[in-house]
């Protein structure tokens, strides 16, 4: 494996035991993340995007969850097999995560200062005073006004946007190599969203962190991500660098998603092309391609076999579809 690849997920499978049988929340997901780059994971609720992230952090509740297969290589080491002690050292130190809801992920009983310094004392073995100094600097870096006064306040005294900044400060304290942001701006207003995205972009440059950005908003990843992973029903629908994904999507689902969102720069009022039907119920997936019941291009073969991986204009862009909207490479050569 080359050195510039920080994280490589191979054939990840995560199963959950439910009353309705075993749910394959993540089913054969693979991707790679280079150092300093941003990967966007896009999908609707239930597509497995959060479960993918939680498995990297080893945060899948077990039971009922279980990582059933695959490898998660972080700097060449498989996070699935390293001892728990080693994982505790990595988590919050080399890999950090920001969650969607900043209110429920901060401890309401502890002052912000305590929640920040704890990270440093634990991972970097700093003394209380050192940790306070570093944490205060970080609060300033993430743009909290009057940080020395805010430092000893409780989470409820902060607004939503400010709490998310505290979360980001906490995640970045140890200058992690990988930052996983799971819908970091979904709960926030657009102007605050712009602030937070700007902040992540800025810090990525200053600290050199690689980022996994999970979202359902294609607009958010358009300006942030180098590569994009589109997930549907626990599987990879399409994987591509940002430009070709938005410009020449190969999977009908990606295309449908792009066409179904109203755009601020549309000229006239047009009718949206919605994707028909309902999002899949993961316990009752049809055989073959999971998108088939909602797909305009589906034929008989789509109901029989899960489509193999096909690449488009090089191995960086691939999709799983029997009837892709672009010409696959194997047909170009033939």
């Amino acid at each position: 494996m080359s050195d510039d690849i920080l994280l490589s997920v191979e054939d990840l499978e995560v199963h959950f035991k439910t009353e309705g049988g075993i749910v394959k929340a993540v089913d054969g997901v693979s991707f790679q993340l280079k150092r300093g780059e941003t990967l966007g994971i896009v999908g609707e609720s239930g597509s497995g995007k959060s479960v993918t992230c939680n498995s990297i952090m080893r945060l899948i509740p077990s039971p009922p969850g279980r990582i059933a297969g695959g490898r998660i290589l972080f700097e060449g080491r498989d996070l699935r097999t390293i001892p728990q002690k080693e994982m505790l050292r990595l988590r919050g130190n080399e890999i950090s995560m920001i969650f969607q809801d900043p209110m429920t992920s901060l401890n309401p009983f502890l002052k912000v200062s305590r929640q920040l310094t704890e990270v440093l004392e634990l991972h970097q073995r700093m003394t209380g005073q050192q940790a306070r100094k570093v944490a205060l600097e970080m609060l300033e870096l993430v743009g909290i006004p009057d940080p020395s006064r805010r430092f000893d306040q409780y989470p409820h005294q902060f607004s939503g946007g400010m709490r998310q900044r505290v979360m980001i400060a906490m995640a970045l304290l140890c200058k992690p190599k990988l930052l996983i942001a799971d819908e970091p701006t979904t709960a926030l207003d657009v102007t605050i969203q712009a602030q937070i995205l700007e902040l992540i972009r800025d810090l990525k440059e200053k600290v050199g962190t690689s980022v996994i950005l999970v979202t359902h908003d294609l607009g958010v990843v358009a300006g942030m991500a180098d590569d994009l992973l589109v997930m549907y029903a626990g599987k990879v629908a399409e994987y591509a660098p940002a430009r070709p994904l938005f410009k020449t999507p190969a999977h009908p689902y990606t295309d449908g998603l792009l066409k179904s969102v109203p755009r601020l720069d549309e000229m006239e009022h047009t009718r949206l092309q919605s994707i028909r039907g309902l999002p899949p119920i993961v316990t009752k997936l049809p055989p073959g391609c999971p998108f088939r019941p909602r797909c305009d291009y589906a034929t008989e073969v789509c109901g029989q076999d899960y489509p193999a991986r096909r690449s488009f204009g090089g191995p960086a862009h691939f999709a799983h579809c029997h009837h892709p909207l672009q010409t696959p490479d194997e047909e170009v050569k033939a």
């Binding site: 657009v190 102007t191 969203q193 712009a194 602030q195 995205l197 700007e198 908003d217 294609l218 607009g219 958010v220 358009a222 300006g223 940002a242 430009r243 938005f246 792009l258 969102v261 755009r263 601020l264 720069d265």
Partner: peptide, 20 residues
């Protein structure tokens, strides 16, 4: 208006954003 992301990487690159 400037804060709303547009799902097009090329437009996003060149857009000027007024961050409040």
């Amino acid at each position: 208006i400037s804060a709303v992301p547009i799902p097009d990487p090329e437009i996003e690159l060149t857009r000027e954003r007024i961050v409040l």
